[in-house]
Write a protein that binds this DNA or RNA. Structure first.
Lengths: 337, 337
DNA sequence: TTGTAAGCGTTATCAC
DNA sequence: GTGATAACGCTTACAA
């Protein structure tokens, strides 16, 4: 039988109210002597308050729900760690859910979260969510931080990097290295990340007076295997290009494989850039030039923000939080004569 | 205001008991007409039962606690995914905690789990846990599955691979390729994984009549950076060796870096093997020869097992579940003349 | 087939 | 400073 507040109360010879006061550190309303006596009994018995019962009254679970597409993409463990660390520091814990970019799976997880009264949620890549589900979240007033998501709602808090700027930066870099035919390997076509990066691509093309060629645009759904297939198809089109921008590093690895299959040398014959800067990028051969997203910091920021929402400290918080990217120049881009 | 079972009951003109029966799919005790009427009201109002209130009565949260050392080691996302997928399929969700091989951090998480009445826990690499904490877990009767842990207790259920056999297999493989001076790069010295693999190493040495040389044994705590440092130190000792076995692939990457720094060619001058077969191993140059651990399957198995414990289906379950490894021969091992 | 009512372990309100 | 007691939203005997 688990020990409850009632047991502690009778053991200490006080009321449960008093015990409750002690465990909640209500500074007033209990004498020092009583406090100490109660603490002793609590410790002697290894008493742990029942968080469920507590939650029933307070309507808060001290749990942060984290919903992301795919934990095996190495970008997300870093991101999660940022959340985890921050949450732990604030006495929250995080429940990890993978939605797999599948609206119904995401809904199942979101339902689970509301049923369990999670205190807040960090929702990454909320691109496929149905309007209905979104409506429901609003109705339930879930404290939510959206990350890399297209949810643009004047209420919602969004965290992301400046994708436009990042892509424009690489485009200009590639241009400066002599590239004019630049392919674009997107992730999930309608996702926020891909869409905004594509806009950056178009904008840069325009600025650099390079005509846009639809045939140089392919999509790999952010996953390695699909990217490999997409790049094969791109090559099969026989439309010449000297560089390719990949919307994440995993897809860049897929691209590497596709080029290797065809004996196309990187970077001599083709230059490749990625996005994310996952830890393995610098261990590829050649070392991948890529745009670094501060995954861990984004996790931290997301957690801090959602906790601030939960605790009602919303003064200084911006609706739109933008972190910086950094172009990591390594060896996968070469000059074109 | 959130809608409760009472609201549904009055809206449907029945008692809350009836509503409860309906949402719990108690097949008997409610007429088809009533059932349908109640469902309609539930759906019209988007009613979601309060899992907290439910948990208070049933003492079960349908949450599985997952405690692992470090989610950024790419082995764990695969493992977690196996758990997540299986849990979801059984209507459980998982709460992810990183213990960082720190006993006090692990205790905080474990406490959180018991306070929240998690239904079960999957505890990976439980190597640093204090006896006291362990004792507490037993007292609270937490349904726990230990993975790659040294917790050897006739009660506890353990899941792991046959580390002895795996290491002996590579050792014989290296031997067959002509290697006689083989170094050992361990993870955390007293961890279950490292200790058992080291035993396998000793055993193989013995079988192959190779004298053991303590100077060829170093430790890198399972992390890339420490492994790099450890290998540098190993090289500084000037004790010749032609191959090194690393206790995980992340450390093998660290070893690659250390060898690269010194202009030592892999595999021409030094052969390297890893352990885990994380997805990036085949993308390294040279492609890493390594021992594959079935991470996803281990996750699945862990989740299935803990769910079986929770649901009291313990007949067929073994206390000691051992999965197979597989030697993935790639390009980081060469012949010695 | 349906409903009443007692609990689950807390917090919160209000007396004393 | 301390303690009854009523919630919180649900499940589950037990009755009807």
């Amino acid at each position: 039988m688990k020990i409850t507040i009632t047991d502690i109360a009778s053991l200490a010879g006080v009321s449960i109210t008093t015990v409750s006061r002690v465990i909640n550190n209500k500074s007033k309303g209990v004498s020092e002597t009583t406090r100490q006596k109660v603490w002793r009994v609590i410790e002697e018995n290894n008493y742990q308050p029942n968080a469920i019962a507590r939650g029933l009254v307070t309507k808060s679970s001290k749990i942060i729900g984290l919903l992301l597409p795919d934990i095996t993409n190495p970008y997300y463990p870093q991101f999660s760690k940022g959340i985890e660390d921050t949450a732990t520091r604030h006495n929250y814990n995080v429940i990890l859910c993978e939605g797999g970019n599948d609206p119904s799976k995401e809904k199942v997880h979101l339902d689970f979260m509301t049923e369990h009264y999670v205190s807040g949620v960090v929702y990454s890549n909320a691109d496929v969510i149905s309007d209905e589900t979104l409506e429901q979240m609003k109705k339930k007033e879930m404290k939510t931080v959206f990350v890399d998501s297209k949810i643009i709602d004047d209420q919602a808090i969004n965290i992301h990097v400046d994708n436009h700027k990042a892509i424009e930066e690489v485009m200009h870099y590639l241009y400066s290295r002599g590239h004019r035919k630049i392919a674009f390997l997107g992730g999930i076509k309608d996702s926020y990340s891909t869409a905004t990066r594509f806009e950056g691509y178009l904008k840069a093309l325009d600025d650099l007076f390079i005509p846009f060629d639809q045939r140089l645009v392919v999509y790999g759904d952010f996953v390695l295997e699909k990217a490999r297939v997409a790049v094969r198809q791109l090559l099969d089109k026989q439309v010449p290009f000297s560089a390719i921008i990949c919307c994440n590093d995993m897809m860049a690895v897929g691209a590497y494989e596709a080029f290797n299959e065809r004996q196309i040398k990187i970077p001599e014959q083709i230059s490749v850039v990625g996005f994310d800067d996952i830890y393995m990028s610098k261990h590829l051969t050649p070392r991948l030039t890529t745009i670094k997203q501060p995954a861990y910091e984004m996790g931290q920021k997301s957690a801090e923000t959602v906790i601030a929402m939960i605790e009602g400290r919303l003064e200084g918080i911006k609706k739109n939080i933008i972190l910086d990217t950094e172009l990591m120049i390594r060896d996968s881009v070469a000059d074109i004569q």
